[in-house]
Structure formats: structure tokens, C-alpha cells
């Protein structure tokens, strides 16, 4: 193991900063058939809700220049099946920290999910998704209002036995104010950004491409925006940050960390190159040499104000 890559997210130490992002890596089991996923820093599992969810009608996927839109709508088998059936399987093939991404429609949902998930062995971080743009009456509603974001954070903190990271939405005018509200409410860290709400229209049918009309945009197209938001939040708060949005190369990882992230999540890139996370882990040491970086932690937040 190359400890030049080791980073910490508060009390949780990762062997490297590379984390597949929630919703773009399933529960790790498909990827485990392709390569040894123990090379990853951690895995953020598919957003889990209290009850099983089918998600939105299809088509759920659209494309854009250097990116994509999705309106999956949190399709998942529900927390009980995840903890009873899926996590035991993941633990057989993965021995690094698991990040449990949870999504609710009420504060009570988040509390129940955090209680259950934080009891799970190997789940070392609870990632509170208050930023899903694809479900109504929930998700993003909590992530676009500082007061609501603070309330969810506080409630989850009272029950969680594991550090709580809040996943922020970019669909706001002042992301730093949301971040500060989470910090004041006791969050142990932040993850940003989730997808940006977008739309595509089919010229022939004159209808939206996505059955749900709008969808969350991700991929390289949003990278500069994500870097800027991470930098703003890192400048405004002192919490550890997982930077996410548009990362697809090892260079992008360094850039996101220079903006202020201690670790990164990689989303859409997994869908087009299933090996991207493994490849980046392998490329990082050489890239550190190339840029004269001793330890990857040396560059974290070197551009914050």
C-alpha cells in the first residue's frame, strides 16, 4: 500500500482518496466482478430509502456535451434488504470503509435510516443525501434551505453512531450558507456536489427526452462548477470535504483536492469506463511525482481563501 495516498476524513482514514459516487456504482457487486475493488479508498453505496423504491418512469437517461442527465429517482430495494442481504455480500468482496448514502422524505426517514445504517459493521460514514433532484417532496427540498439542512443534520447526528457527512446540492445561490448551517448543526463533514437540474428536448417529438421532464446533470461538463463550489465551501467552513462532480482523470482528482477536498467521489465516469476508479488509483503515485508532491495531503485546500 502506498501511504502517500492515505487521507483522513475526520476520524476515518482511507488508504487513498478515490471513492465511487453514490448511484454510479450500485452496491459494488457488479464492479467486484471486474476488478479487485479493495483498491478503492471507500465506496458510497446507492442512495437508500426506508421503503423499496421503483424510481421514475423511463427514459431516465439523456446525454449532453461531455456529460449526461439522469432521472433515476432513487431506485433501491429499501434499507432492510440493503442491510440484511446486500451489505453482507459486499463485505465478502470489500474490506475498506463503506459510506452509506441515505435519502428521505421527512426528518423521521433520515433518522430511521441513520439509526439502522450506522449500526452496520464497516459502514464508517453516513452520507446524508439532501440533494436528490429527482424526487418530489423530499431530497433536494432539505438541501436548498439552510434551516431545513441544519434540522436534518442535527436530527441525524443525535442518532448516528458514525460520522455524518451531508451531501449538498449545487442547485442553490449560496452553497456556503447551506454548508455553514450543516457545520453549526454538528455535521462531521460535507460531500459536494450532487447533480445540477437540467433538461433535454427531442426535436422530432417536441417532448422532453426524460419521462420525468428534468434530470440531474453530471459528468465532465460540471467539473469547473464543482471545483468552484468546493473551493467556496472549503473557504467558509473547516469541515473535511468529499469533492464530487465531473471527475474523470487523476489530474481532476488533484485539482479537486487543491480546491479544498480531502477525498473525491467519482460518478458518471464509472458508467463509461468501468475501470476508471482503479485506473486513477494506479496513476496517482506517478502523477504526484510529476507535480513534485510528496503526500497527497500536502495539496488539500492549497487554494482556499
Amino acid at each position: 500500500m502506498d501511504n502517500r495516498l492515505s487521507i483522513s476524513l475526520g476520524i476515518v482514514t482511507l488508504q487513498n482518496p478515490i471513492i465511487p459516487a453514490s448511484g454510479t456504482f450500485g452496491f459494488g457487486l457488479e464492479a467486484a466482478k471486474l476488478y479487485d475493488i479493495d483498491c478503492l479508498g471507500a465506496i458510497s453505496i446507492k442512495g437508500t430509502t426506508v421503503l423499496p423504491r421503483y424510481g421514475n418512469p423511463t427514459p431516465r437517461i439523456a446525454e449532453c456535451a461531455e456529460g449526461m442527465l439522469n432521472s433515476v429517482g432513487l431506485q433501491n430495494p429499501g434499507v432492510d434488504k440493503v442491510t440484511e442481504e446486500i451489505l453482507p455480500k459486499l463485505r465478502e468482496v470489500f474490506h475498506q470503509p463503506i459510506i452509506a448514502n441515505i435519502s428521505g422524505f421527512s426528518v423521521e426517514d433520515y433518522v430511521q435510516l441513520a439509526e439502522k445504517m450506522s449500526r452496520e459493521e464497516q459502514v464508517e460514514i453516513i452520507e446524508v443525501n439532501i440533494s436528490c433532484p429527482n424526487v418530489h417532496n423530499g431530497g433536494m427540498a432539505f438541501g436548498t434551505d439552510p434551516k431545513a439542512a441544519g434540522e436534518v443534520t442535527k436530527a441525524v447526528k443525535t442518532v448516528s453512531r458514525k460520522p455524518v457527512f451531508v451531501k449538498l446540492s449545487p442547485n442553490v445561490t449560496d452553497i456556503a450558507s447551506i454548508a455553514k448551517a450543516c457545520e453549526q448543526a454538528g455535521a462531521d463533514g460535507l460531500c459536494l456536489i450532487n447533480t445540477l437540474l437540467g433538461m433535454r428536448i427531442n426535436l422530432r417529438t417536441r417532448k422532453p427526452v426524460l419521462a420525468n421532464r428534468y434530470g440531474g446533470m453530471s459528468g465532465p461538463a460540471i467539473f469547473p462548477l464543482a471545483v468552484r463550489m468546493v473551493n467556496q465551501v472549503a473557504s467558509a467552513c473547516s469541515l473535511p470535504i468529499i469533492g464530487c462532480g465531473g471527475i474523470s482523470t487523476a489530474e481532476d482528482v488533484l485539482e479537486m483536492m487543491m480546491a479544498g477536498a480531502s477525498a473525491v467521489e467519482i460518478g458518471a465516469a464509472n458508467l463509461v469506463n468501468p475501470y476508471v476508479c482503479r485506473d486513477i488509483v494506479e496513476q496517482l503515485p506517478g502523477l504526484l511525482d510529476q507535480y513534485g508532491i510528496n503526500n497527497i495531503t500536502d495539496i488539500i485546500g492549497c487554494t482556499t481563501k
Binding site: 448511484g23 454510479t24 456504482f25 450500485g26 457488479e30 464492479a31 446507492k46 421503483y54 424510481g55 423511463t58 427514459p59 431516465r60 437517461i61 439523456a62 449526461m68 439522469n70 433515476v72 431506485q75 433501491n76 458518471a268 464509472n270 458508467l271 463509461v272 468501468p274
Partner: peptide, 17 residues
Amino acid sequence: EERMGCGFGLCMGCTCQ
């Protein structure tokens, strides 16, 4: 047939009932 994000089970884009 369905619109696909990945084609190998990661994204939950291609669901049918």
C-alpha cells in the same frame, strides 16, 4: 430496449417492470 447509462448494472437507468 431501454436508454442506458452504463449497460452493465451500475446506474439503474434501464429499468423495466
